[in-house]
């Protein structure tokens, strides 16, 4: 598994990734649209967002999202 941008987020990422990869192969590819790793993603994402702000990548991301937004307005987020 690749590491996170935040050294302290890598463990949270590992937990989330392993949940996601299992879900992807066993559920998603077999037709399920119900996500299962939301709580782990939420925790991991919160950690990453702190680092992104620290490194001031959040502004660059916001710019990029203006041009091509993440298409999640109606679907189940994150």
């Amino acid at each position: 598994m690749s590491s996170s941008i935040g050294a302290n987020c890598t463990e949270l990422k590992a937990r989330y990734d392993s949940c996601f990869n299992k879900w992807y192969s066993e559920k998603f590819l077999k037709g399920s649209t119900e996500t299962e790793c939301e709580d782990l993603l939420k925790e991991y994402k919160a950690c990453v967002m702190t680092i992104i702000k620290e490194k001031q990548i959040d502004k660059l991301l916001a710019e990029a999202r203006k041009e091509s937004p993440f298409p999640s307005s109606s679907s189940t987020s994150s």
Partner: peptide, 9 residues
């Protein structure tokens, strides 16, 4: 890092 992820139902 994953920043966002969503499935369209």
């Amino acid at each position: 890092d994953v920043l966002n992820r969503a499935v369209d139902p």
